[in-house]
């Protein structure tokens, strides 16, 4: 039996600082711009419909403000699409997977392979048009902590999923 139990100094531990992140597909930026546009149009459409239905002129009286607010929100969303894309990145290590995101508030989440419950590949309608997939990684830590890596080529997503599957399987055997 092979057994080793060397003492490990904390300073020798592999660090999350040394990780080189891979960026996601650039097309993801286009997808989020389109999603933002749709969102902004819906935001604009709701008061408009209510106004038309109720026969009020409130909407048209304040059109400048409404358009102004919508433009500001829209501009912010577009900026967010650019910056959000630039700050998203993922990395795999031998024993965990890491995903970082956020522009103003930044965060990185690390999921050890031996805690993964299952993985899923997801494709929204707009993502499908651009040939992108989203990899979802579930743990028992609750829905707010599940990893969702967007903007992957379907091929990459599948390979990642398979790799994780192998890793998770190996952990179960041990």
């Amino acid at each position: 039996m092979e057994f080793s139990n060397q003492q490990i100094e904390e300073s020798e531990l592999p660090s999350v600082l040394d990780i080189k992140y891979r960026s996601i597909q650039k097309k993801h930026r286009t997808v989020s711009i389109i999603v933002s546009t749709i969102l902004a149009l819906i935001l604009l459409a709701i008061p408009l419909t209510i106004n038309i239905l109720s026969g009020d002129t409130w909407f048209f009286d304040h059109i400048i403000y409404i358009v102004g607010i919508c433009c500001a929100v829209y501009g912010f969303l577009i900026l967010l699409s650019f910056k959000g894309y630039a700050n998203k990145g993922y990395a795999m290590r031998e024993r965990d997977i890491i995903f970082k995101q956020g522009w103003i508030w930044r965060s990185s989440t690390i999921v050890p392979f031996n805690r993964i419950q299952h993985t899923e590949i997801d494709q929204g309608p707009i993502e499908r048009m651009f040939g992108l997939s989203k990899l979802k990684i579930f743990t028992a830590g609750g829905s707010s902590s599940d990893l969702k890596i967007p903007g992957l080529l379907p091929d990459t997503a599948n390979r990642l999923k398979d790799y994780i599957q192998i890793k998770v399987g190996r952990d179960e055997e041990e």
Binding site: W105, I110, S145
Partner: peptide
């Protein structure tokens, strides 16, 4: 289960972070 490191702009400037353990 997993661990999250997060930083607000202020925390980034001051070299601080929140550690959240799930």
């Amino acid at each position: 289960q997993n661990i999250e490191l997060s930083q607000s702009p202020y925390q980034r400037r001051k070299k601080l972070a929140n550690v959240k353990i799930y």
